[in-house]
Simulated assay, not measured.
Amino acid sequence: MNISGNTVFIPGATSGIGLALALALQERGNTVIVGGRRTALLERIAAEHPGIDTAQIDTADAASIEAAAARVLARHPRLNVLITMAGIMRVEDWHRPESFLADAEQVLTTNVLGPIRLIGAFIGHLQTRPDATIVTVSSGLAFTPLRATPSYNASKAAIHMLSESIRLQLADTSVSVVELVPPAVRTSLLPGHENSDAAMPLDEFVGEVVGLLEREPEATEIQVERVKFLRYGEARGDYDQVVAALNATDPHATHR
């Protein structure tokens, strides 16, 4: 993925990693459209950051995705990058179904069906662009499980394998597939973790991501150094120790 000269749509970018990445990409000469559910937040972002366009979208709603895609493409026919940023995380207790089932269904709808539906809404258009990119967002927890968030872990493992698979299928097109693999980052993905000592500062994370995109435009996975402890535990042969360390240090650390 080239770091500049793109038209980029980022659903789920009204806060956290999504918004910080949107602003960083705008600074590097990209046209950026931020998507989100709450119109008040979108209006504030547009007012505070001239040049950023916005689109109302609920990525848990298939009809909302289709409608938003039509509006975005009508306004931005040169769109060539889709970043499927939207995601939720829930702490679950799997001892009793009433303690986890509703949350698990919401997590999988947003984190797995959401990106699938988004890609489905844009893939036809992206194949018409000479240089297009789909950026998926998995997590270090796709590779090392956090005890407190089973469905989130599973959703991000699904996104990893989805990314690997559609990259193979789309190899005969102009569309590349890049997987962003965050570690724990200081966002509001779970309450109270904006200042977690176990999480990476947001500006530090986005700065490293942009640097990797600049240096490695052909990369298929964007991994900051901090996520490699989780990403490669099995390959290194210390997976059990990595699982134990993750769950001992911060049982509710957020990884997106």
Rank of each mutant, 00 (worst) to 15 (best):
N2D: 15
I3W: 11
S4I: 09
N6L: 04
T7W: 07
V8R: 09
V8L: 05
F9N: 06
G18W: 02
L19S: 00
L19C: 08
L23P: 03
Q26N: 11
Q26E: 14
E27T: 08
G29V: 03
T31A: 15
V32E: 08
G35W: 03
R37A: 00
R38W: 03
T39P: 05
T39H: 14
T39R: 15
L41F: 10
L41A: 12
E43G: 00
E43P: 03
A47N: 10
E48P: 07
D53F: 04
A62W: 07
I65R: 04
E66L: 12
E66G: 11
A70W: 01
R71L: 12
V72C: 06
L73N: 00
A74C: 00
A74M: 02
A74Y: 00
H76Q: 10
P77G: 02
L79H: 06
N80K: 09
L82R: 06
L82M: 08
A86P: 02
G87E: 04
R90M: 00
W94V: 03
W94D: 14
P97T: 15
P97W: 15
S99I: 06
L101K: 12
L101N: 09
L101R: 13
D103F: 03
E105Y: 06
T109N: 15
T110Y: 05
N111E: 04
G114I: 07
L118R: 07
F122E: 03
F122A: 05
F122M: 01
H125R: 09
L126D: 09
R129K: 14
P130H: 07
V137E: 09
S138K: 04
G140A: 02
A142H: 02
F143P: 02
T144E: 14
P145N: 08
A148E: 09
P150Y: 01
S155N: 06
A157P: 00
S163M: 05
S165W: 01
L168T: 12
L170D: 01
D172R: 13
V175I: 08
V177N: 03
P182Q: 01
P182F: 02
P183Y: 10
R186G: 02
P191H: 08
G192R: 01
H193E: 14
H193P: 07
E194T: 11
N195C: 08
D197I: 12
P201K: 00
L202K: 08
E204M: 12
E204V: 13
V206T: 07
V206Y: 04
R215M: 12
R215Q: 15
E216Y: 11
R226S: 13
V227L: 05
G233W: 10
A235W: 12
D240N: 11
A245H: 13
T249I: 11
D250G: 09
P251A: 08
H252D: 14
H252C: 03
A253G: 07
